[in-house]
Structure formats: C-alpha cells, structure tokens
Write a protein that binds this DNA or RNA. Sequence first.
DNA 1: TAAAAGTCGTGATATTTTTCACAATTAATT
DNA 2: AATTAATTGTGAAAAATATCACGACTTTTA
Lengths: 211, 211
Amino acid sequence: MQQNKIPQATAKRLPLYYRFLNNLNQQGKKRVSSKELSEAVKVDSATIRRDFSYFGALGKKGYGYNVEYLLGFFRSTLDHHEVTEVALIGAGNLGTAFLKYSFLKNNNIRISKAFDADERKVGSDIDGVPIYHIDDLSEQLDGIRVAILTVPSTEAEVITENLVKEGINGILNFTPARITVPNHVRVHHIDLAVELQALVYFLKHYPLDKE
Amino acid sequence: MQQNKIPQATAKRLPLYYRFLNNLNQQGKKRVSSKELSEAVKVDSATIRRDFSYFGALGKKGYGYNVEYLLGFFRSTLDHHEVTEVALIGAGNLGTAFLKYSFLKNNNIRISKAFDADERKVGSDIDGVPIYHIDDLSEQLDGIRVAILTVPSTEAEVITENLVKEGINGILNFTPARITVPNHVRVHHIDLAVELQALVYFLKHYPLDKE
DNA sequence: TAAAAGTCGTGATATTTTTCACAATTAATT
DNA sequence: AATTAATTGTGAAAAATATCACGACTTTTA
Ligand SMILES: NC(=O)c1ccc[n+]([C@@H]2O[C@H](COP(=O)([O-])OP(=O)(O)OC[C@H]3O[C@@H](n4cnc5c(N)ncnc54)[C@H](O)[C@@H]3O)[C@@H](O)[C@H]2O)c1
Ligand SMILES: NC(=O)c1ccc[n+]([C@@H]2O[C@H](COP(=O)([O-])OP(=O)(O)OC[C@H]3O[C@@H](n4cnc5c(N)ncnc54)[C@H](O)[C@@H]3O)[C@@H](O)[C@H]2O)c1
C-alpha cells in the first residue's frame, strides 16, 4: 500500500516529528525551519529535509514549513484521524504502567482490552480498561490487530501463536524472548534490559568527549 | 578506552548475544554455531560472525563456538563481573515497574536508589530500593553514573541539568522530551509512544507478506 | 526597488551496516 | 586414512542511512 519507498529509518522518525509539530502548533507557532526542528528533536537538519522530501515538496524555500499544513499532512499520513485499538497481553508491573498511560491524546492509540491468566485480575479493570482471561482471546479480540506483549518470557512463544491465530499482525514485544512469527506478522522488540546494558557498555568503551 | 573500532550496531547486539549464550550454558550446551544462534536471536548468521570477529577469532572453523569460552569472553567485555549501580528518577507508574524488576540476575545491573518529588513516596521503598527526595540528589547519588529517567516530560530538562551537575554521564530517557546534554553525557531515548505509533505505521504502509 | 539573509530540495558523496560467497579448517563418518 | 559435511572468518559487494554543499527561490531589510 502507498509508496513503500519511504526508508524505514525515516518511517521511525515520523511519529517524533509529528509530536513536535503538535507542540509547536499548540504554542501557536505558524512556521518552522528544519534547523529549529533539528534542535528540538536532535536529528540533523539535512536528514529532516530529506525525510520530508520523500512525501513531496512540503516546504517553501527561504521560508521553512507551515506548521499547520505540515501537521495536517502528517495527520493523514500517520492515519491520525482514526483511533487504533490495541490489546495488552499481561497486566503485570509493566503492563499496568502502560494501562495507566494515555496514548490517546498524542498518538491516537487506545489500549482497549487487556488479557491476563491471573484469576484475581480477570474481571477487574485498570483505568477503565477491562481485563479478560487469556483463554477468551478468541471471543474478545475481535477486530484488534495490534498487541503489546508484557507476559513472562516463558509464556511468550505460546501466546504469540494464539495471537497470530486470532488475527493479530503487529506485536510490540517487551519480553526478552525472540518470538517466531509467520512473515505477514510484524514484531518490534523493546528489550529494556538490553537497552540498559548497551548504555552501560557504551559509557565504558566509547570515548567520553566528542560523540 | 579499548578498541573503539566496534560498530555501534554491533555493540547494541552484544547484550542480546550474551543473554542467549547464558541460556545455552544453563541448558548445558557445549557448542553453538552462528546458524543456531541466528535462529534464536533473529539476526543473520553472517552478521553474528562479523560481530564476533571484531573481538578476534573466537570460534573454530567446522566446529562453531564453545559456549563457555564465548560466555567468559563476553562476561569480561561487558564488564559483567562487577555490578553497575543505577539511579531511577521518578518512581511513578513506569518507574515502579522497573523497580520491581530485577536486572541483576541476567544483566548485573542494580537500581540501587530512586528519587521522587512526591513527599508521600519519599522515605518509603519499593522492593527494597529506597526512595529519596529529588532535592537530595547531591548527597545521595554519590558514585552513581547512570540514571533512568521516568519523570513527567515537563520536568525532564531541569532534572537532567541537575543529574549532569552531579556527575551522571549516562541517561536512559523514557520521557518524550528530547533532552539537551553536554557531549560527555550519553543519552539513549526509549520513546514508547513513538515505538507504538511506528509499529502501527509500518503495518498500514508496508507490504504484509515478505519482510 | 535592490541587496542581504534565510531556507528548501536534492545531486553527489560519505559513512555505516548488512549480506554474499568462498577458501581454509575442523569434525564426523566410512 | 580418506572422504564428506559442517562451519568459521573475511574480502568484496550491496544496501541503507546520513551528511555536505549549493542552486533556486522567498522573505526581510535597507
Ligand atoms: N518490569 C520491567 O521493568 C521489565 C524490564 C525488562 C523486561 N521486562 C519483561 O517484561 C515482561 C513483563 O514484565 P513484568 O515485570 O510486568 O512481569 P509481571 O510478572 O509483573 O507481569 C506478567 C503478567 O503476565 C501475566 N501472565 C502470566 N502468564 C500469562 C499467560 N499465559 N497469559 C496471560 N497473562 C499471563 C501475569 O499474571 C502477570 O500479570 C517480562 O517478560 C519481563 O521479562 C520487564
Ligand atoms: N507509563 C507509560 O506507559 C508511559 C508511556 C510512554 C511514555 N511515558 C513517559 O514516561 C514518563 C513517566 O511516566 P509515568 O507513567 O511513570 O508517569 P507518572 O506520573 O506515573 O510518574 C512520574 C513520577 O515522577 C515524579 N516526579 C514529578 N516531578 C518530579 C521531579 N521534579 N523530580 C522527581 N520526581 C518527580 C512523580 O511524583 C511521579 O512519581 C513520562 O514522561 C511519560 O510521558 C510513560
């Protein structure tokens, strides 16, 4: 669908641009240059211009970008007029933090259902999000295509199989397990322990001054 | 310090390799090939061999890698014999989840102190980690060089300044704010809302089958 | 109105990362 | 002992990403 010419690296930065444009818009700013944007999001200004250029000529030479126009453009590009429903699997420590956070305001994403195996949690809700039993995926998941996975890593593989069976095609996996999926399913890993360890590694092994 | 020849992309994968080698070792496995490892961590086997090769010839042709040897090697490379102490700033929803998680077992990282501005939290502890007042950074932080930032985004910039002043040189920033730091300080961003939105974007705009 | 300053869009170039593909070597098998 | 199968380490190529640098155009200033 659409031009899949857009590099992945660019696609990953789009939500970031979008959020900052939103901020600017709320501050009443009318125009912005790639240089200003660069300082705010810490991405080289040439990279920003290049990123934008994949979508056509969105700016004006000598002027910069019109915030409102750009925002409108991104809104439709990011499908931001419609809310994306997401399921959360595993309402534990991490899962609960997500349930309490509103992705709706800035991101038009709503965690609308949670699933867990713990009988004490099933039937309750967290900040208005109902928790269902994991065995009821089939009945309750209907239509939802994206899942956040915050279960113990030992459960990840089996649960993933079920999620895929029920039509999920996007998984944000916080589990350390590297899950296997058919190739119509997209998995993004966020491995917090790895991130932390990588940071520590960089601190110890890379020159301190100058990047 | 050390050969900073190692590409960043490689460095980021090291903790991942390390964890899987640990698993294998615990399962009693004596040898492993780049092909097996590849299937487990979902990284191309040539990439794995290349990554390892930056540290010298760690394997044996026709045999593969000796798990124990490789593990020992990574242990010292990742400084895994000593525990890295980390401070958590902002014991809210996300912060609490981290405090309840043990990074010690697999990663030799310990969140040893937490800081918050909420008087009701200060003085208590979460899973044994004491919560101090953010104003007491100076007295309490001593020696800690790495911080996890999980405060409201509006506070991020000011707090960062203080952290830097107190000698922090690595920050894992979960705030949507893009913080500004002197260039001897390293910041890694984990922007959960962006990750989620990027996943949704990929699902809608990239071909479903094949990659 | 003319000159100066600012800024985009992009060809060209540089850098980084990934992958291919194979000689060299080891282990396993017959 | 000889043959076959497995697997590394790496030169070379490819792919992806980032940056430079400048012509073209717009806005601002004088
Ligand atoms: N909390 C952190 O800071 C942190 C850090 C790094 C990685 N992780 C990873 O994130 C995942 C979640 O961590 P957590 O701290 O929230 O763990 P947790 O134990 O607090 O939560 C796990 C939740 O999953 C539920 N669960 C167990 N089996 C299930 C099943 N079969 N189906 C549905 N739900 C099931 C449990 O009832 C629990 O509510 C883990 O894989 C962990 O390794 C967490
Ligand atoms: N929870 C999530 O799922 C989620 C998702 C995406 C992004 N984030 C981001 O992570 C950050 C934390 O989120 P959260 O949900 O844990 O928020 P939270 O409000 O639950 O926690 C913030 C904590 O910071 C403390 N705090 C406030 N001001 C402080 C100060 N000056 N010094 C020290 N502590 C201070 C508060 O007392 C509170 O305990 C936010 O920036 C949020 O945008 C969270």
